[in-house]
């Protein structure tokens, strides 16, 4: 049976991270499974864990009393779920609903933040992985907001 360190090292988000860092962050990780339809995160709730998706898909949604739930974006294998655990007040900014059976690694937020604080070099190495993903998502969200595929767009 593979160790947690071996398992998380195979995830695209962490691939290539130096072994000692992998070993360190593996200490904060556990395997999780979510059934289709279940909510992995809820807007406004404490961001106590963040997830690396291994299998299955997650819809990020926002609910409004007038419009109901609206899907903003879907995530799939290889994606990260959520960055709110990094930024005060550590509350999720959207709902995350499993669209099918989701396998993921869950990292304890307090544990991971503590390790990043204790080893800023490792923290920086992790931030270098978060930032490109967040930039890419921001760029995609802006393009999505342009609604450019309409006939007159």
């Amino acid at each position: 049976m593979k160790s947690m360190a071996e398992l998380i090292h195979a995830h695209p988000f962490l691939a290539g991270l130096p072994e000692p860092y992998i070993a360190t962050v593996a200490g904060c990780a556990r395997n999780v499974v979510f059934e289709a339809g279940s909510y992995i995160i809820r807007e406004g709730h404490s961001a106590t864990e963040f997830h690396l998706l291994r299998d299955g898909h997650v819809a990020l949604e926002l609910y409004s009393p007038r419009g109901g739930s609206k899907v903003l974006q879907t995530l799939g294998p290889g994606d990260i779920l959520g960055a709110s655990w990094l930024v005060p007040p550590y509350r999720w900014t959207s709902d995350g609903r499993a669209l099918d059976r989701v396998h993921a690694f869950a990292f304890d937020a307090v544990c991971l933040r503590g390790k990043c604080e204790a080893d800023p070099a490792m923290g920086y190495a992790l931030m270098q992985r978060f930032l490109p993903v967040l930039m890419q998502r921001m760029s995609a969200a802006r393009l999505q907001a342009m609604d450019m595929f309409g006939a007159q767009a």
Partner: peptide, 23 residues
């Protein structure tokens, strides 16, 4: 396949097409 905006019957991906390229 992804769509910018889904509807009640859509169970596929939502988001801009470039998001599909990341992985």
């Amino acid at each position: 396949v992804t769509v910018d905006a889904g509807d009640a019957h859509w169970s596929g991906r939502v988001g801009f097409v470039t998001a599909l390229l990341a992985n």
